[in-house]
């Protein structure tokens, strides 16, 4: 195992973790405050990527595209709240799951209609195409560091907003006691819409950030949503702190597991057995961890306080 690979993979894990956090934070907000399970959350991640891709070609600048795409995805999130989620608040989780499952089909197909079956690659701005040489063996693409920085900035901004603003105060109050917020005479509908829009913008941002690496493609959200659910379940649904810690944990474990698990297995078993079992185990690793966490703490690592 060499150190430079470890450093690179750790950065990759960090990057994945931060992107996961951007998706999971919206999911956990929506669930914590609205008690709503939104399977279609990652469709906004996909739409964010597509919208940003189109805009990048239209305006010729990736940053400008991101800046325009953010409010657009927020608006889409608001629309999802208004037309699909709102009529379902009083229903049980099963209905949420089914309706938003339908919404995934609708949004995926809509993307297919608009952008076609092929994915769209997003060109990186000139400034980020390079690599940064940390040592002779340690070369990191600049854009990876940009993603990490942007992810940290978004997480920091979110933290600041939740702790210091009035909206944040309402969100915190709502996550721990929904009834109380209603009793305060707050415009609940507006608050719910804002929470959805915020979540959508965060998920969209994750999609926009990843698009230059993977390209925007149909169904790109469908794997992310499951991992994001793993994150919020492990972290404890409704807990921002839990989502952040779990996202980094899952991101790191998944990335490092895939690259180093066979080496670790070779310490305790034959090289052949290690080569054979490591890929399967590393692919399942985050689910195994989730199962272990839930077996020990059925409400996740940071369970929300009294409901």
């Amino acid at each position: 195992m060499d150190t430079s690979l470890l450093v690179i993979q750790t950065l990759n894990g960090l990057q994945l973790g931060l992107l996961l956090f951007l998706v999971a934070s919206g999911l956990t907000l929506v669930f914590g405050i609205l008690d709503f399970v939104n399977l279609a959350h990652a469709s906004l991640y996909m739409l964010g990527a597509f919208i940003c891709a189109s805009l990048t070609y239209a305006v010729g600048n990736f940053f400008l595209a991101v800046l325009i795409a953010l409010p657009v995805t927020a608006l889409l999130g608001w629309g999802v709240e208004r037309f699909v989620a709102r009529p379902l608040y009083a229903r049980d989780h099963l209905d949420h799951v089914l309706a938003t499952f339908g919404l995934i089909l609708v949004l995926d197909t809509a993307a297919h209609l608009i952008w076609g079956p092929e994915g769209i690659a997003v060109p990186l701005p000139e400034a980020f195409r390079g690599q940064i040489e940390l040592s002779e063996t340690l070369v990191i693409p600049t854009y990876r560091l940009v993603i990490i920085a942007a992810g940290l900035a978004a997480a920091g901004g979110l933290y600041w907003m939740v702790v210091h603003t009035r909206l944040g105060m309402l969100i915190r109050a709502g996550a721990s006691n929904r009834v109380m917020v209603g009793a305060l005479g707050i415009n609940i509908e507006l608050l719910f819409g804002l929470v959805f829009a915020l979540g959508a913008a965060l998920a969209g941002l994750a999609g926009m950030l990843i698009a230059p690496i993977t390209e925007a493609s149909i169904g790109m959200g469908n794997q992310v949503i499951i991992t994001a659910f793993v994150v919020i379940i492990v972290g404890g649904i409704g807990s921002m702190k839990g989502a952040f810690i779990a996202a980094l944990l899952i991101g790191l474990i998944d990335t490092l597991g895939r690259s180093f698990l066979d080496d670790i297995f070779k310490l305790v078993m034959s090289p052949d057995a290690a080569e054979n079992s490591a890929p399967a185990i590393s692919a399942m690793l985050i689910y195994i961890i989730m199962a272990c966490v839930l077996a020990l703490k059925p409400q996740g690592l940071f369970p929300p306080k009294v409901r």
Binding site: F31, H93, I233, A280, M284, Y287, M290, L294, P298
Partner: peptide, 23 residues
């Protein structure tokens, strides 16, 4: 394991085990 959990946790952990088999 799953039946120790409730509500949305149950929904998600059953799905997680299915994903394990999938992967």
């Amino acid at each position: 394991i799953c039946l120790r959990t409730k509500g949305v946790y149950f929904i998600m952990i059953t799905m997680a085990f299915a994903q394990m088999v999938y992967y």
